[in-house]
């Protein structure tokens, strides 16, 4: 086969696959953030984010390919086209918007601090305490800004943070309040732990809720998915998925 012919075929194939709506939507997910996403022993992914991802694919009429990715490599992986969108509880912040683009929010819950019941310290008194946080989250930003005196301990996944909090290596941890309550406090591991003080308000670091992330040029996909979120809110699909996992409406105001 001549080079020209080969080149032609490659170009034709690329154009054809770009045109076909049936091209699968590759979705970056984490799988270590229950109840939003977790992995069953048999390897299947479950959770609110996963259900939402499948619903989005269904409405886009595209096949869903879930791609698991460690959290601190999420944005680089999106930019290097390992997948087309991130549906993994990623908060919409100004800092991230420098690199990528977001749909409208699909849920919004505040961060909170978890420590032992009767921990003997408070949010205003965190100096010298070992504070666990997942690396590359909005909570890393909040922790550095609001608790500069605390000793920050960084982890690759939220599950590791909870493990070390339970084993006593950490004095406290900061993460999404809903995720902490469902994924830790209500589990066996979280016995004897509670939220330390009120939920935290830090719009600077936390942004305006979690959205689906896309590359900056993919405005079509972004707008289509924003419309889907609105559609799900309007026709009650959102409520069905929401009630499967949560007692409150996680969409927020």
């Amino acid at each position: 086969m001549s080079i020209k012919k080969l080149l032609f075929m490659v170009v034709a194939f690329t154009l054809a696959s770009a045109a076909a709506q049936a091209a699968p939507l590759r979705v970056g997910v984490e799988g270590a953030y229950p109840p939003f996403s977790w992995k069953e022993p048999d390897g299947t992914l479950k959770g609110f984010d996963i259900d939402v991802a499948y619903e989005v694919c269904k409405r886009l009429q595209r096949e869903c390919v879930l791609v698991e990715q460690e959290w601190d490599g999420m944005i680089p992986a999106l930019l290097s086209r390992k997948f087309d969108t991130i549906i993994a509880s990623m908060s919409i912040t100004e800092e991230r918007k420098k690199k990528i683009d977001f749909t409208e929010k699909y849920y919004d819950t505040p961060p909170g601090i978890v420590a032992k019941k009767n921990a003997g310290f408070s949010q205003s008194n965190m100096a010298g305490k070992r504070l666990g946080v997942q690396r590359a989250t909005t909570h890393q930003c909040t922790a550095e800004k609001m608790f500069p005196g605390a000793e920050l301990v960084l982890y690759a996944s939220q599950e590791e943070v909870f493990q070390d909090l339970a084993s006593g290596r950490l004095d406290a941890q900061i993460s999404d309040s809903l995720q902490a309550s469902e994924g830790f406090l209500k589990q066996d591991m979280g016995k004897g732990f509670a939220f330390l003080g009120d939920m935290i308000s830090d719009p600077g670091c936390q942004g305006v809720g979690a959205g689906f992330a896309v590359r900056k040029k993919d405005t079509l996909l972004r707008d289509a998915m924003s419309a889907i979120i609105k559609g799900m809110r309007d026709d009650g699909t959102y409520k069905i998925l929401n009630d499967k996992y949560f007692e409150i409406d996680v969409y927020g105001k």
Partner: peptide
């Protein structure tokens, strides 16, 4: 290095 990447979402 991972702290820097994580804090500023760099690759």
């Amino acid at each position: 290095g991972r702290w820097l990447n994580g804090r500023y979402y760099l690759a």
